[in-house]
Design a protein around this nucleic acid. Structure first.
Length: 587
RNA sequence: CGGGAUGUAGCGCAGCUUGGUAGCGCACCUCGCUUGGGACGAGGGGGUCGCAGGUUCAAAUCCUGUCAUCCCGACCA
């Protein structure tokens, strides 16, 4: 490829609307341009990178026994009603109507369609197990797209779905995919960590995510991990040994105290001269439009995904002040946020009447003689305990105890009891055990050896193709630009003739270029009539793994070959330069 | 959805307070000069100043509305 004809426009400055480095560099180096919020044009250089990632994915998926197919991007409402997700999925599902007013959606994922495909074609146990995958654009109407390709609304994804007859088959395929994923990311030049995670809206029981570890804002997930054993988990799923309370409440008897202006835990601690770990904190959430009281020891935070799972809801958010005050009135109290607590109203559980679910974190069990709100502004109960009269007040027994606590770094690993560490990660892939979550409601069944019809046992396995490419930039760059791993670089080599008016330089460069082209090397020659500095800057910015400069060292019969990733420079005799390049690419 | 900000040429920005011929740098075109880390000179093309109303002799500038984009939060495979 001749640089003068390559469709690329590098920019002298970073785009003003980009925050993270992969977004900045991909725009500045001419790989992508935004079309509208969260939607990008993939320009020729980017297209080449994406194709390389896709081909690595294809290669490993095919080796793992999966078969590629392609499903429609537009999907009918009816299928989503069968699975029940038309109601559940929320605004992220881009819904539209055709000219006949029939409702459709743009595929954010393809469980429904693949289950449709499977039930048409997989009738007998003899055909199973099967793993089908596609590489395709997805659309999710994200509330807030950001970080360029890392969280776009339209993005390219590989999604695979397995169908089997037993849990054992699913377990085997899950392991098979985990291994394929390790191969894929390693071939893409990415170090990934496989971490336990919540299974989210897609559902199912077991799931893992593949994280590219990056301690920057680009990593939107917190990953807790142990350096002693191999435990690692997304914060939405991580657990730790239940931490002891730091201080026991030193209140000798239950008593209601005036605690003016102690809306926050911090203010309450200052006022009573106590530690947060002797306070029972009550948070009000709205889960699927119904209120939930979340009880947790006040030195810990609630993990909302865990709480959502404990409630069995699809949607959860913290209640507003107005909603809390309204709930209090409905329950016969009158209290502002900061003074809420799980107590009966004159011996009556008025929360239950309002369909309030009370979920208590495991940390509640560690509390004795604790401090708790009693739904009266500027008052708290101290020295409280469950199962006793507390100065005339009775605490409400939670509907459920569950782990709804956000793990903190330094807490102890649930497996080996050593301190946990935290880091940020970019999720580039995930694998789920779905079981019969979709096959049952969609009546996707096969006939087993015993003549009975049974639903498929399913798994699903995703890789963000465009996100993986962007994550590679996050992982491999410097102040000058991108340092593409060879396997996914748009081109392997750029040849820079330093002075085109010098015939010897020009012809030497062109000879090497033609020779490499013939050998099938993906090579660009910078034939632009620009000063060398401009060419070097662009070569570094775009990130060609290898740069061959034909310039002043030609007087000694040498070319200068620079390895972008290491910065290592070699002076190579002209007649050895071809072999040097070929050897580099072989590695 | 709450809070904040911004929309002026492909990109980065000034001009707006105090209304009066739409500017600068980069990029692009032509010529000259230059050729090892984003040179220089001369000339040139490109903008209904997000959009719609209003005020005014006159609006990029003032007023109202609206749309879009970005940031923080909430949310999220």
């Amino acid at each position: 490829m001749k640089m003068s004809k390559l469709f690329v426009q590098t920019l002298r400055e970073f785009p003003s609307d980009a925050e993270v480095i992969s977004h900045k560099l991909l725009v500045r180096a001419g790989f992508i341009r935004k079309l509208t919020s969260g939607v990008y044009n993939y320009l020729p250089l980017m297209k080449r990178v994406l194709s390389k990632v896709e081909n690595i994915v294809r290669d490993e998926m095919d080796k793992a026994g999966a078969q590629e197919l392609l499903m429609p991007f537009v999907q009918p409402k009816e299928l989503w009603e069968e699975s029940g997700r038309w109601e559940v999925y929320g605004k992220e599902l881009m819904r539209l109507k055709d000219r006949h007013d029939r409702e459709m959606c743009l595929g954010p994922t393809h469980e429904e369609v693949i289950t449709f495909v499977a039930r048409e074609g997989l009738k007998s146990y003899k055909q199973l197990p099967v793993n089908l995958y596609q590489i395709q654009s997805k659309f999710r109407d994200e509330v807030r797209p950001r970080f360029g390709l890392l969280r776009g609304r339209e993005f390219i994804m590989k999604d695979a779905y397995s169908f089997g007859t037993s849990e054992a088959e699913l377990d085997a395929e899950y392991e098979n995919m985990a291994q394929a994923y390790k191969n894929i990311f390693s071939r893409c030049g990415l170090d990934t960590k496989m971490v336990q995670s919540d299974s989210g809206a897609i559902g199912g029981s077991v799931s893992h995510e593949f994280m590219v570890i990056t301690d920057t804002d680009a990593g939107e997930n917190d990953v807790f991990y142990c350096k002693t054993c191999d435990y690692s988990a997304n914060s939405n799923h991580a657990v730790s040994i239940l931490p002891e309370a730091n201080t026991n409440g030193n209140f000798s008897k239950p008593e209601v105290l005036d605690t003016p202006n102690t809306k926050s835990i911090e203010e309450l601690c200052d006022f009573l001269k106590i530690e947060p770990s002797v306070i029972l904190k009550t948070l009000v959430y709205i889960a699927d439009k119904k209120p939930v009281l979340a009880l947790i020891r006040a030195d810990k935070q609630v993990e909302e995904t865990k709480l959502m799972n404990a409630v069995g809801a699809n949607d959860i958010r913290i209640a507003s002040s107005a909603e809390i005050e309204e709930l209090m009135i409905n329950c016969g109290f009158n209290a502002k946020p900061g003074f809420i607590g799980p107590v009966l109203n004159n011996g009556e559980n008025t929360f239950k009447k309002q369909e309030v679910t009370v979920i208590a974190d495991e940390t509640i069990k560690t509390l004795t003689n604790f401090v708790v709100g009693i739904n009266q502004t500027d008052k708290h109960l101290v020295g409280a305990n469950y199962n006793q009269d507390n100065a005339g007040l009775t605490l409400i027994e939670p509907d459920k105890y569950a782990d709804i606590r956000l793990v903190e770094a330094g807490e102890l690993c649930p497996v080996c009891k050593k301190p946990l560490f935290v880091t940020r990660g970019i999720e580039v892939g995930n694998i789920f055990k779905l079981g019969t979550k979709y096959s049952k409601p969609m009546n996707a069944v096969y006939t087993d050896i015993d003549g009975k019809t049974k639903p498929y046992i399913m798994g699903c396995y995703g890789i963000g193709i465009s996100r993986t490419a962007a994550a590679a930039v996050e992982a491999h760059h410097d102040d000058f630009g991108i340092k593409w791993p060879v396997a996914i670089a748009p081109y392997h080599v750029i040849i820079v003739p330093a002075d085109l008016k010098n015939e010897e330089i020009k012809s030497t460069a062109e000879n090497l270029y033609n020779k490499l082209l013939e050998a099938g090397v993906e090579v660009v020659i910078d034939d632009r009539d620009e000063r060398p500095g401009v060419k070097f800057k662009d070569a570094d910015l775009i990130g060609f793994p290898l740069r061959v400069t034909v310039g002043k060292s030609l007087a000694e019969g040498n070319l200068e070959i620079k390895i972008r990733s290491t910065g290592e420079v070699s002076m190579v005799p002209v007649n050895e330069s071809f072999d040097f390049v070929m050897n580099f690419l072989k590695k």
